[in-house]
Amino acid sequence: MDYIEQAKKEIKDEWFKNHVAEIRGNEGMQVIYWGKPGSFEYRTTFVLSDNNIFIFGDIA
């Protein structure tokens, strides 16, 4: 396995293995919360409003 494939595997299997997505909202405005329950580590929020996407996150 080359370096890039090994890095992808580590990120998927170690950094984000317990992350889940929670989607809230209605037509015209949705918010997707993505993170590990009970933790603020590597948590990301996606706001979808009409034709716009806003991304907020934490890489701590």
Rank of each mutant, 00 (worst) to 15 (best):
V20E: 15
T44W: 14
Y3N: 06
D2H: 01
I55G: 00
K12G: 05
D13Q: 15
K9F: 06
F16N: 07
G28F: 06
N18R: 12
W15Q: 12
Y3F: 06
L48K: 13
W34E: 01
E14H: 07
G38R: 00
V20G: 02
K8L: 10
G25N: 07
F40R: 14
N18L: 11
N26I: 03
T45P: 02
A7T: 09
F40L: 08
A60C: 03
M1A: 03
Q30F: 10
Y3Q: 10
I59Y: 13
V20W: 09
G25D: 09
T44L: 14
Y33H: 12
K17L: 08
R24Q: 10
F56N: 06
Y33T: 02
Q6F: 03
I4E: 07
H19S: 14
Q6V: 02
H19V: 03
V20R: 11
H19D: 09
V31R: 11
W15V: 15
Q6D: 09
E5T: 06
I4P: 00
K36E: 15
E5L: 04
I59D: 13
E27N: 13
K8Q: 07
E22D: 08
S39Q: 09
Q30A: 02
E22T: 11
Y33R: 07
K12D: 10
E5K: 06
F46Q: 08
H19F: 03
D13T: 15
T44A: 10
E22I: 13
Y3H: 04
R43S: 11
K36N: 12
N52A: 02
N26S: 15
V20Y: 09
I32F: 01
L48T: 11
V31L: 11
R43K: 14
V47M: 12
G25E: 07
M1F: 05
N26T: 13
G57I: 01
W15L: 15
I55K: 01
E10L: 08
D2L: 02
G38Q: 04
Y3I: 09
F16E: 11
T45V: 15
D50Q: 14
I23T: 13
W34V: 07
M1C: 02
K9S: 03
N18V: 04
M1W: 04
V47H: 02
